[in-house]
Design a protein around this nucleic acid. Sequence first.
DNA 1: ACAAATTTTTAGATTTGTCTAAATTTTTTA
DNA 2: TAAAAAATTTAGACAAATCTAAAAATTTGT
Lengths: 219, 219
Amino acid sequence: MTHSEENYIKAIFHLASTGIEVISTNALAEKMETKPSSVTDMMRRLSEKGLVHYKKYQGVSLTTLGTKTALSIIRKHRLWEVFLVEKLGFTWDEVHEIAEQLEHIKSEKLIDKLDELLDFPKFDPHGDPIPGKNGEFMEHDNQLLSQLPIGSVALCVGVKDSSAVFLRFLDKNSIALGNKMKILEKEEFDNSLRILLDERELQISQQIASNLYVKKIEL
Amino acid sequence: MTHSEENYIKAIFHLASTGIEVISTNALAEKMETKPSSVTDMMRRLSEKGLVHYKKYQGVSLTTLGTKTALSIIRKHRLWEVFLVEKLGFTWDEVHEIAEQLEHIKSEKLIDKLDELLDFPKFDPHGDPIPGKNGEFMEHDNQLLSQLPIGSVALCVGVKDSSAVFLRFLDKNSIALGNKMKILEKEEFDNSLRILLDERELQISQQIASNLYVKKIEL
DNA sequence: ACAAATTTTTAGATTTGTCTAAATTTTTTA
DNA sequence: TAAAAAATTTAGACAAATCTAAAAATTTGT
Ligand SMILES: [Mn+2]
Ligand SMILES: [Mn+2]
Ligand SMILES: [Mn+2]
Ligand SMILES: [Mn+2]
C-alpha cells in the first residue's frame, strides 16, 4: 500500500466513526483536502484491492480488510505519538504532524518493540485509545463535558478536537488530561460553564466544553 | 525533496566516498538497482535543484548543497539505527532496512531529540561515524584487518560490508565490535589469518579480514 | 413530475519516477 | 584513425496521484 492509499483508508475510518457509515465522495474530498474527482479515482483503486465497498454514486465504506488496515495505521500513529511525548519530550500539540509521517513506516516488529518500550500504553497523548496488535479496539464511551448536568464531578480524559490551536489553548489555561472538574453553573445565555478545575474556578465556553471528553466520577 | 531524490543523493555520496569523485551513470544505476535512462532523468532534476554537478556524458558529483543534504540523511539513518539497537533491542543485522525508511522522516526537532535520547552517539551499530548536526563528519581512517602485519594487536571497530549475511556470520563466530584481536599467522596460500580473538584462537578468510575495520593498539 | 441544483464521474492533462527501444556520444581496439 | 564496443541520452510509454473542465446521475424544490 502507498502512503496515499493508507491516508484515504484512515480518513474513511475516521469519517465512519462519526456516525455516518456510508461516506460520500464530497465528504471524503473535503477531509483529504483534495478534489472529488481524485477521490473517485482512488476509490476505484481501493475497491479493486478489496479495501472498500464502492459502487458509483453510492458512496464508500470499509471492508473487513479495510477496517483491519485502518486500525493498524491508527495503532502506529498513536504509538508513535506516545513515543514522541514520553521518550522525546515533545508536547501534545507537536506530535500529530510527525506521527502522520511515522505511521507509514512498514515493520511489524518495529511497532511491537515500540509498544513494549512504551509499556503497552492504552491511550495516546490526546486520550484516544490505541488499537491492539490484533485489531482489538474499544471506542471510548466517554461523555463530553458540555453534556454533564450541573453538580457532576468528572475526570478529563480526552480531547475531541486535537488541533494544535486547541491544545495550546488548553495548555495556556492549565487544563490537562487527568484533571478533576466539577460543574458549578451553566450560563443559559451562551451555554458557557463555570467549573471547579482541581482547586481553581474557571469559566469555559460551550465551544471548549464540547471538545473535552470526561469520565464521570460517582460520589 | 522526495524519497527517491534523497536516495539518489545518498547513493552518489556513498559512491564518491569510495574514491571515485565523478560518478558514472552506469555505476549509479547499478547502485540504485535501476536503469541508466532513469538515472539520466534524475540527474537532470537534481542538477536543476542545485544538488549535483551534471553535464551530459560527463558523469555527476555532489554540489556543496548536495553533500550537506547527503550528510543530513546519513545522520538520520545512523541515529535511527542506534535507536533500533539501543532502545528497541534489534540486532545489528536487522536495522538497516528499517532505517532506510526512517531516514526520510522530515523533522529537524525529531532528530535532535533522538540524538539527545541516545546520548549523542558518535558511531552507528556497524561502527560507521554519525555526521554532526551541522554537517561535521570525520571519515574514519581505520585500517582493514587484512592490512595489518603479523604480530599486531588491534581493536575491531567497524565492518566494511554491513550486509545482514556478513553480520550474522560474525555473530555466529562471536566476532563483535570492541573485540581485541592479535594477528598470529598469515597463510600464504589463500591469505587467510590465524588470529587470537580475546581468548580464542580463530582462522579467518581473507574475505572476512578485508571487511573488518580495526584500530591498532600500540604496545 | 419535471426543471434546477447538487453531486459524482469521466475525459484529458500534468508531475514524478520508472521502463524499453532507439539514437547518439564516447571510449576502446585493431 | 576508423570501425566496433560500450556508455549515455532521447523518445515514447506507463502507473500513481493529482488537477480542471465537461458530462452524467442523483437529489431537491416547486
Ligand atoms: Mn494524531
Ligand atoms: Mn498519514
Ligand atoms: Mn544502514
Ligand atoms: Mn533510503
